[in-house]
């Protein structure tokens, strides 16, 4: 979903970091994308390349770290691994699962020169 505007947010974060940290070129961008964040890594790669064109991150390598999804069942209290954002608890079939990790997307590191 909306990978294009997310790629624009990445550019913005890069530009703000460039001012704060004084760098001119970005070699690598490390993105952390939660498995439950509804972002398609492939769509993100595609948008990333087009958004970064003619900017200080033109041609930068995009590394995506996919973080696993976990949740807690509000009915039986079990910690469960979540492969999808919506589903039933594998122990008690309850749909009341609360996501505890894996729904964020963030810029983790930049390799700059």
């Amino acid at each position: 979903m909306h990978e294009m505007s997310l790629a624009e947010s990445v550019l913005q974060i890069i530009e703000e970091s460039a001012q704060a940290q004084n760098f001119q070129r970005v070699r690598t961008v490390v993105l952390e994308i939660g498995r439950l964040s509804s972002v398609e890594p492939d769509a993100m790669r595609f948008c990333f390349d087009s958004v970064m064109r003619d900017t200080l991150a033109d041609g930068a390598e995009l590394q995506i770290i996919e973080t696993p999804g976990t949740g807690r069942c509000l009915s039986c209290g079990t910690e469960v691994e979540m492969l999808e954002k919506y589903g039933l608890c594998p122990y008690c079939d309850s749909p009341h699962l609360q996501i505890t990790a894996g729904n964020l997307m963030r810029v983790k590191d930049l390799v700059v020169e």
Binding site: S9, V10, I13, R106, V107, D109, E113
Partner: peptide
Amino acid sequence: TTTRVIQVERDLLAR
């Protein structure tokens, strides 16, 4: 060329 790693750790929807 000297490269360095910058830890950013910023959420994409934070803005």
